[in-house]
């Protein structure tokens, strides 16, 4: 079954997984706002959702020590480093305000997907039980 286009939940199941993964990346950025040398990362949500991520010619991973690229490496391999607006002296590239805004936006989008999945479930339950 294609996770990106489920017959019942459409794209929202996959979107929820992506959103929760992105929350994790953004939470790590915020946690490390004061860690010297930490490089902020982010997931490109639109690109991952459309399935156009990864290189068209992924590298083969034949041993455990190889660095995974593309789909085999999970979403972790898709986390990109961010270009800082204001580089700081200690090498940290986290912009706490930007990350807080992104975190809030991502949490809201998570709730949107959750609401859509929920209403789909409601519709299915109505269809199964036969009383609205």
């Amino acid at each position: 079954m294609n996770v990106r286009n489920d017959p019942i939940f459409g794209i929202h199941g996959y979107a929820l997984a992506l959103r929760s993964q992105r929350m994790q990346v953004l939470a790590s950025n915020l946690a490390n706002a004061d860690t010297p040398g930490f490089k902020a990362r982010d997931l490109d949500f639109e690109q991952l959702l459309s399935g156009e991520s990864g290189s068209p010619l992924p590298l083969a991973v034949s041993r455990a020590t190889h660095i995974a690229t593309g789909a085999e490496g999970g979403l972790g391999a898709e986390a990109k480093y961010r270009v800082p607006l204001q580089p700081s002296l200690d090498g940290n590239t986290v912009d706490a305000q930007m990350d807080q805004a992104r975190f809030a936006e991502n949490a809201l989008s998570y709730q949107v997907s959750l609401t859509l999945v929920n209403s789909r479930l409601d519709g299915l339950l109505t269809a199964i039980t036969g009383n609205a």
């Binding site: 994790q24 790590s28 946690a31 490390n32 004061d34 860690t35 930490f38 990362r41 972790g76 391999a77």
Partner: peptide
């Protein structure tokens, strides 16, 4: 204090890092 990055799961592509 001196802070450093703490990686929680290296096997899953290392997306969550604490302090």
């Amino acid at each position: 204090p001196v802070f450093a990055v703490q990686a929680f799961d290296r096997d899953q592509g290392d997306t969550s890092t604490g302090v």
